[in-house]
């Protein structure tokens, strides 16, 4: 598991880690019952601090995305995909509001959505 962390972003690093892991689960790249890397390995691979990864995992456990296997590590829980999807939809809503403010017509947004979804089906 590897992804880019943007250290200069205003988004906290632990939040970035949480989001990326959720996306990996949604896209099916991380499956229920699968182990995620240990805190230390992920910290080393991403080049972030132990405390930061520990915080991301802790919060993912609290949100029911990961669970602790004593002495073994962290596994992906039986995730409530619907909940993660709702979060993503909230973000999309914000973006669409920005587009609306920018004067982008509905038709164009629908067209983009269509293109993305059709491209997916191919």
């Amino acid at each position: 598991m590897w992804f880019r962390i943007d250290f200069h972003s205003s988004k906290p690093i632990y939040e970035q880690i949480k989001e990326k892991i959720k996306l990996l689960i949604l896209s099916g790249k991380l499956k229920e019952g699968e182990f995620v890397p240990s805190i230390r390995y992920l910290a080393e691979d991403l080049g972030v601090n132990l405390n930061t990864v520990a915080r991301a995992y802790r919060e993912l456990v609290r949100e029911g995305v990961l669970e602790v296997r004593r002495g073994e590590g962290y596994v992906v829980s039986k995730v409530n995909l619907e909940k993660i999807r709702t979060q993503l939809e909230t973000e999309l809503k914000k973006k669409i509001e920005d587009c609306k403010k920018a004067g982008i017509p509905l038709e164009r947004i629908l067209k983009v959505a269509e293109e993305i979804y059709r491209g997916d089906a191919r």
Partner: peptide, 25 residues
């Protein structure tokens, strides 16, 4: 950073913000 993997602590100064963002808790 790897010093902390062994439970060590680090106190350091810098005026390079980009560096601090990468390494400081």
């Amino acid at each position: 950073r790897s010093l902390t993997f062994e439970g060590k602590s680090v106190l350091y100064t810098s005026h390079v913000l980009a560096e601090v963002e990468k390494i400081a808790d």
